[in-house]
Design a binder for these strands. Structure first.
Length: 580
DNA sequence: CTAGGGTTAG
């Protein structure tokens, strides 16, 4: 083995053909099948671009390849930039020679490949092969199968594999947990976590939950945004001494920040020894500042990053978002122009938004058309939003046309365009937009909000009466409107589409999901208690005004997490300083 | 002695 390492060195410096020739002439390849497979494995996994093709060449040259030789190639291909080739090899379509019979390991590598290709169809076929080969009692293989299903987006099948397994180790649990958390089922992930927390004593060979368990569970908590669950997972991690683990800490920073507790997030960041902090630690902490509207702090932390850590695309995006949310136009541009990695669509998105909000529409547009790749839907929507904000009809029309070309068909696009026309009293055009909407079967993205009170989640959809206390909630809203009217509130109806009357517009606005959630919070919690609401979309202008006034009229702090950031309302002011 | 599970993003 030592010899192989020396040869490996040789190979890097003098090129693989020499090494290969040497191995062939020395007769090692044929004489020691174990060594040969091991060498093939190393070769197939080597980062050198010519290594993998060479491993395949070698495999082809073997008169009677063993299963382990095949596995080495399958493994290398599965990890390569073209994982589908691993599947082709297994199907016998990459090498014409007769292949050895695959074993559990072969299938494991193939499942990894089908997961990386998100190829659910192939995962099903490999599942059949698992049964046919009679290796379905293998915990590792079944966990890989489960994981492959989850990564292909078939969570039901992943769950089914999990349920039917008689032995599950901690990786099995982690795999389903992570699959659910990343498959936009954070509530199911959290339920699974609680199940594990109550039964981990049953794990084989005294296994315990580990940092992967905690990271996956925290990811679910962060998505849902419920501080209580996040703190429970934190306490759970402490029981196993995992709260000192850097990756767990990184996830804790993210979780606390997304659950509205910037101070706890920063406490965790500072609890990591400076030399242990990783790029992800900084990214999560910078992102935390940005989400909470502290662009200056985000910039400061970015500048304080030690030189041993090289910022990546995520770092820059987090800083740029911070600048954007705090209106730091010049700082944002300076950071963008100093980027040491190639900007992607999201980086351009923040810059276009930054320039657009600042009224620098020509620069925003120039940025879009001079990008090295074509703008996507979200970028044109950003530009359309800027055009609406500053009442520039030509740019709004241009952006709307691009959006139509790209097949975007959401109500928000039309509302913005219509509002630009309305602001210029171009009623014919307003009518035309409305007609287009009617004939295009416009998609409405449903808005919802939720709030947790005494450990129970209460979810609200615009104008819904599903909540058991909806009558009280609607009465509370009437009270709210009359009390804030005394503070000068007038409904801001311009964000509602113009095909309904003024009264109906006010009605539609009045029962926005976030208002329902706030109203419920007011009647369901004691005076003075902070209200926390999470919303799936950006908060609308009217709800923003209303939340400010409620915070003053009722003496409440209200924290709303919208799609992009936190808004903290207190005594009539919002932490975003109306810049969002 | 070569198998499985993970965090940051407009």
């Amino acid at each position: 083995m030592e010899n192989l390492r020396v040869f490996g060195f040789f190979w890097f410096f003098f090129g693989f053909p020499l090494f290969h020739a040497r191995l062939l002439t020395s007769g090692h390849l044929g004489a020691h099948p174990g060594l040969r497979a091991r060498f093939l494995d190393r070769l197939a996994l080597s980062p050198h671009p010519a290594a993998l093709p060479h491993a395949l060449l070698l495999l082809r040259s073997l008169p009677t390849p063993a299963t382990n030789d095949l596995n080495a190639a399958l493994r290398g291909l599965a990890a390569s930039p073209h994982p589908a080739r691993s599947l082709l090899l297994l199907a016998g379509r990459l090498l014409p020679a007769l292949l050895p019979r695959p074993d559990a390991l072969s299938l494991s590598f193939a499942l990894k490949a089908s997961a990386r290709c998100s190829d659910a169809h192939t995962t099903v076929q490999l599942h059949a092969l698992v049964l046919r080969l009679g290796v379905a009692a293998d915990v590792r293989l079944l966990t890989t199968l489960l994981d492959s299903y989850a990564k292909c987006g078939d969570l039901a099948s992943a769950r089914k594999v999990f349920d039917e397994m008689t032995v599950r180790d901690v990786a099995t649990w982690n795999s389903l947990l992570a699959g659910l958390a990343q498959g936009t089922e954070p509530n199911l992930a959290l339920a699974l976590f609680h199940r594990l927390a109550n039964s981990f004593q049953e794990l084989p060979s005294r296994e315990e939950p580990n940092e992967v368990t905690i990271v996956a569970a925290l990811s679910a908590c962060a998505q849902i945004g419920l501080l209580k669950d996040g703190m429970y997972v934190h306490e759970f991690a402490k029981r196993f001494g995992l709260d000192r683990n850097v990756r767990v800490c990184n996830s804790l920073i993210d979780m606390y920040s997304k659950c509205g507790s910037l101070s706890r997030a920063l406490d965790v960041f500072h609890s990591i020894k400076p030399e242990d902090r990783t790029l992800v630690s900084y990214n999560a902490a910078i992102q935390a500042h940005s989400m909470h509207g502290h662009g200056g702090d985000a910039l400061r932390l970015f500048d304080e990053m030690p030189t041993r850590i090289e910022p990546d695309g995520v770092t820059y995006l987090a800083v740029l978002c911070g600048c954007n949310h705090s209106g730091l136009v010049d700082d944002g541009l300076r950071v963008f122009n100093s980027m040491r990695v190639a900007p992607n669509m999201k980086h351009y998105g923040t810059i276009v938004d930054l320039l657009g909000r600042a009224g620098r529409l020509t620069e925003a547009y120039d940025t879009v058309i001079s990008m090295p790749f074509p703008a996507d839907i979200v970028l044109w929507q950003t530009l359309l939003g800027a055009a609406k904000m500053h009442g520039v009809v030509e740019l709004a029309e241009l952006a709307a046309n691009k959006l139509a070309e790209l097949g975007s068909n959401v109500d928000g696009d039309y509302v913005l365009l219509s509002n630009v026309y309305a602001s210029k009293a171009r009623w014919m055009d307003v009518g035309r937009v409305r007609d287009t909407m009617r004939s295009n079967d416009v998609r409405k993205v449903p808005g919802f909000s939720y709030t947790e009170i005494d450990g129970v989640m209460h979810k609200f959809i615009n104008g819904d009466k599903e909540h058991p206390r909806w009558q009280e909630i609607y009465r509370a809203l009437e009270d709210i409107v009359s009390r804030i009217s005394e503070l000068g509130y007038e409904p801001e109806t311009s964000n509602v589409l113009h095909d309904i009357g003024e009264e109906e517009k006010q009605y539609a606005l009045c029962y926005h999901s976030e208002k329902l959630a706030i109203a419920f919070g007011l009647i369901a919690t004691p005076p003075g208690e902070t209200l926390r609401v999470i919303k799936n979309l950006r908060i609308c202008g009217d709800c923003h005004v209303v939340a400010k006034l409620i915070s003053k009229a009722y003496g409440r702090v209200i924290v709303i997490r919208d799609r992009a950031r936190f808004h903290r309302f207190e005594d009539g002011q919002c932490s975003c300083r109306d810049y969002w």
